[in-house]
């Protein structure tokens, strides 16, 4: 079988450029304090999101046409695509709901980099090996990536908070919401991420128990997801019990996202059960 580029991947290439356009518009809007430019960025982000989501379903259909039908949540390429979808969707919801203009400047780059990195991966649709043939696959991957995306948004908010805190009336920070609002939103994103990371870890454990007879094997990916969980659990506890907020929790949030990235990518350089991405 020769590897061929499925049409959904061509669509992803286009979406990558759309996200780049959104990124440029958001940054221009932020730097020139123009909510209209940032609004155009949001329109571009929504357009990209539609294409991104369409490509997800298209790939799903393609897999059935190839006789290897499965929800496209089974390898690194597909994980990058779903991450971009959830990331941008969360961004748009938060921006609209909390009337923020420039959060996209820090979140669209993540979606853009995710898809640009996906372009370096094999986009070939491959059938599922026996271990992956489980309904837990969908629940596990989807919730894990909901968690990752919420943490990504929290990262964007944490960075914004630190910028705002450093110079509240600087040229690019004066247009940002108050530091207190950013701090609170960052914390809420962390809570959302923590909930989904927890569900992601638990569904993974239940799945592992039905596939291998062990719900926990301390394989590198499991361990790193637990490390990530510990870090965000500390953040929540210092905030609730010790009253930490602001800079300190923002820094923990950034450290936490570094752990997310390692759980996601770094672990591929170590050996383990998640070798398929």
């Amino acid at each position: 079988m020769t590897p061929s580029v499925p049409p959904s991947s061509t669509l992803i290439t286009i979406v990558t450029f759309v996200y780049f356009g959104a990124l440029v518009l958001y940054w221009a809007g932020w730097i020139y304090a123009s909510p209209r430019l940032a609004g155009a960025g949001r329109v571009a982000a929504v357009a990209g999101l539609l294409g991104n989501t369409a490509s997800f379903f298209l790939r799903w259909v393609e897999s059935y046409r190839m006789g290897a039908g499965h929800v496209p949540l089974s390898n690194l390429y597909e994980s990058l695509v779903i991450f971009a979808i959830i990331c941008v969707a969360t961004l748009v919801v938060i921006e609209v709901r909390y009337k923020l203009n420039y959060l996209g400047a820090l979140v669209t780059p993540l979606a853009f980099f995710a898809l640009a990195y996906a372009a370096l991966q094999s986009s070939e649709i491959r059938p599922l090996i026996p271990a992956l043939q489980s309904n837990w696959l969908h629940a596990h991957v989807f919730t894990a990536f909901l968690g990752y995306a919420a943490f990504a948004v929290a990262l964007g908010l944490a960075v914004m908070y630190l910028l705002k805190k450093r110079s509240p009336d600087g040229s690019i920070t004066s247009s940002l919401p108050e530091a207190g609002v950013l701090d609170q939103l960052m914390y809420q994103s962390v809570l959302l991420g923590f909930l989904f990371l927890t569900v992601g870890i638990i569904t993974g454990a239940v799945w592992a128990n039905s596939a291998w007879g062990r719900y926990w094997s301390w394989d590198p990916k499991e361990t790193w997801s637990l490390i990530t969980w510990f870090i965000y659990a500390s953040l929540i506890h210092v905030r609730l019990v010790k009253g930490w907020a602001g800079t300190r929790t923002a820094v923990i949030s950034i450290v936490g996202f570094a752990a997310v990235l390692f759980t996601w990518f770094g672990v591929n350089y170590l050996s383990g059960l998640h070798a398929y991405g």
């Binding site: 361990t223 790193w224 637990l226 490390i227 510990f230 500390s234 506890h237 210092v238 010790k242 050996s271």
Partner: peptide, 22 residues
């Protein structure tokens, strides 16, 4: 709670060892 937070950090940090050492 200081103990809980210390333990969470220590567990997170030491867990890394086992992912690096086979």
């Amino acid at each position: 709670v200081k103990l809980s937070i210390t333990l969470l950090f220590v567990l997170a940090a030491t867990s890394i060892l086992g992912t690096v050492i086979p």
